[in-house]
Design a protein around this nucleic acid. Structure first.
Length: 642
DNA sequence: CCGATTCGTGTTTTT
DNA sequence: CACGAATCGG
């Protein structure tokens, strides 16, 4: 069946690919096949993946199969691909080529400013909830006007203001990237013709986790040729909270009635026992396409279920088990600990450190989310885009320059009246001598303007500029470094960040010396963009154990998996309705099916949760495990509950 | 206006 | 527990 999918002659194809059925392999081979046997030029293939990391891996696997050209593939997340299209065809899309990308933190800051302006405290209205509602609207390709009558006026007013703020800063949020691209393609038939006829083949991985906007994008992109190849598994849809719509699978069949459907239900990854456990659990979901994965692999060991007294002893147990495995020659890289929430990693980290076992946390609190790194980024963004109010507010008084509430309000007022950015409003105040020459704001604006001008003229003269050097200068002259000098780790982080910039620029100028689309600030802009789109570059070195959330484990596999915290309130974390419960169950399913050889499930009777020590009930999912495939382990105590 | 301190609140998952 | 917001003295 894999072969059928790879060699599919053309037209729409829907591949139902169960966990471990060789989904990635099929996509990789499919692309390689198109390139070498059908002579499809790489740049005419559009392939959307779930993460940029996955794209990178696939790209290098394809590179190894075809001789060269894989670097030309348009492959990445929907967000990166849309950013690419919008930039490359900025004129046709009617957008500014140098747009910034706002991530969720930026969104929250914008919303907070708006709430402030409306005299609403963040207590009455949760900015995160607003952000989420805005994002969900965009997933449906809806703007505020489309929602009149469906959403309350206050929200719509905030939404409108929010869009204005982004427009002023020439910024797009994640939702805009998809929405702008899709709407333009749908409404402008010339543009659609140009773009859609360029991409002869459209491939989509993890199709079950696409949202409605992404579906419409796929439809528009494949309108010319209908060579659309989607791969997914409704049982692994775990991003409903982010707007993913599993109905896209049915929608696809409606929209492409001639589509061929191929089912990959042979699993090549796990043992029979692990698979039986996973199958048994997922079958409890009512809303799914019926299917049963099978395998020719060996039976393997029973799945162990271990009850521990507390979160601490759960961690100690797992670490003890890992030490035993290590002694018997199992490499740490073949083991993973999976949990529902990042908060659960703490006790494991403590225990691993105590035992001197190297580990790596995937996802979670990221480097670039540290305050000092965010500050540095904000300085760079203001340099590149003075109209970026979010960054302006962030650093205008860090370090303290005597610019407080009063001054900010004055700037805000001018900005509001003239409908300009805070930066321009500040300049306005200075020009009208409403601000004293000796004031902090005056000095700050003058100084920064000078830095920007010098950098610009240097760029014009030399054609290039070392961004790390520039950043260093800014952080020094602004007094930021002195301000944090007592904090050793912050200084270190800043230095690491500067190092990242150096590295990035070397790689960048080696890769695209001439073709640096995006104007004179190309390097800087691309650097900032990568930061918001994919976070820091992953440094994967050395023999280490992996810790990650179940979400982050999607698409990965490990010979040995520990799934921890199988308790009510942890997994399932919430189950206020059937829809939510089923998504939690799919999460458990995804976790089970990461394991190749052994799967160990643990739970604690007591754990720290919400600041309290709480006694925990075993997860309802434990009762769904087939007794014949599992081995109960009583841990330290007696009196098993099941 | 600054910075330190206290207070209170609220906790998923991520492009 | 950890963060941000409110508060207060300088």
């Amino acid at each position: 069946m894999q072969r059928e999918a790879v060699l599919h002659p053309g037209g729409p194809l829907l591949v139902f690919a169960g966990a471990g059925s060789g989904k990635t392999r099929v996509i990789v081979h499919r692309i390689a096949h198109l390139m070498s046997d059908h002579k499809v030029p790489a740049f005419r293939i559009f392939a959307a993946t779930f993460t940029n990391k996955a794209a990178k891996e696939m790209r290098s696997r394809i590179e190894a199969m075809v001789q060269g050209g894989a670097s030309e593939l348009c492959m990445g997340t929907f967000h990166s691909l849309c950013a690419l299209l919008l930039r490359r065809h900025a004129k046709e899309f009617g957008v500014k080529r140098d747009f910034l990308i706002y991530d969720e933190n930026d969104q929250i800051e914008v919303i907070k400013s708006i709430l402030d302006e409306f005299d609403l405290s963040p207590k009455e209205i949760d900015p995160r909830k607003i952000a989420s509602r805005i994002n969900r609207a965009k997933d449906q390709l809806k703007n505020p006007e489309d929602l009149i009558g469906y959403e309350n006026e206050v929200f719509l007013e905030i939404f409108r203001k929010y869009q204005q703020s982004l427009a002023k800063a020439y910024a797009f949020d994640f939702g805009d990237l998809i929405m702008q691209t899709t709407i333009a393609l749908e409404n402008d038939s010339n543009l659609r013709e140009t773009i859609a006829s360029r991409f002869i083949h459209v491939l989509v991985d993890e199709f079950q986790d696409t949202n409605h906007a992404q579906f419409r994008l796929i439809r528009a992109l494949s309108s010319a040729h209908r060579n659309v190849f989607v791969v997914g598994d409704d049982d692994q849809s775990i991003y409903g909270w982010r707007g993913a719509d599993r109905r896209n699978i049915e929608e696809f069949r409606k929209c492409f009635p001639e589509a061929r459907v191929i089912v990959l239900d042979q699993n090549y990854r796990s043992t029979k026992r692990i698979l039986r456990v996973a199958n048994a659990v997922i079958q409890k979901n009512k809303h799914r396409a019926p299917k049963v994965l099978w395998t020719e692999n060996e039976d393997g060991d029973p799945v162990s279920v271990v009850r521990c007294a507390s979160d601490r002893s759960e961690a100690d147990f797992v670490v003890k088990r890992i030490k035993e495995m290590q002694r018997s020659g199992i490499p740490l890289t073949s083991i993973a600990i999976l949990y529902r929430t990042h908060a659960q990693s703490r006790p494991f980290e403590d225990s691993l450190i105590a035992h001197g076992i190297p580990y790596r946390i995937i996802g979670g609190f990221r480097f670039y989310e540290r305050t000092e790194i965010k500050d540095a980024i904000a300085y760079l963004r203001i340099l590149f885009r003075p109209e970026d109010d979010v960054s302006f507010l962030r650093i205008v008084n860090r370090p303290a320059r005597g610019i407080g509430e009063q001054t900010i309000q004055a700037i805000r007022q001018v900005a509001e009246e003239k409908s300009i950015s805070l930066w321009d409003a500040s300049k306005e105040l200075i020009a009208n001598s409403l601000i004293k020459r000796r004031s902090g704001l005056y000095q700050f604006i003058e100084w920064f303007d000078q830095v920007r001008n010098e950098a610009k003229s240097k760029l014009e003269k030399d054609g290039t500029i070392r961004i790390a050097q520039l950043a260093k200068r800014i952080l020094e002259e602004s007094g930021y470094l002195d301000w944090i000098e007592d904090d050793e780790s912050r200084i270190e982080n800043i230095n690491a960040f500067l190092g990242m910039m150096e590295e990035f620029q070397d790689a960048y100028s080696a890769e695209s010396p001439v073709e640096s689309q995006g104007g004179e600030w190309g390097v800087l802009r691309t650097f900032l963009e990568q930061l918001s789109l994919e976070g820091e570059s992953p440094k994967e070195e050395g023999e280490a154990l992996a810790l990650m959330s179940i979400h982050a484990s999607k698409g990965l596999e490990f010979p040995h998996v520990f799934l921890v915290g199988l308790e009510e309130g942890v997994l399932p974390l919430r189950a206020s309705n059937e829809e939510e419960l089923e998504e939690e169950r799919r999460l458990a399913y995804v976790a089970f099916t990461r394991a190749r050889k052994t799967l160990t499930i643990t739970l604690a009777l007591e754990r720290y949760l919400f600041g309290f020590r709480r006694h925990q009930q075993p997860s309802r999912f434990l009762w769904e495990l087939p007794a014949s495939e599992i081995k109960l382990d009583f841990g330290e105590e007696k009196g098993w509950l099941l």
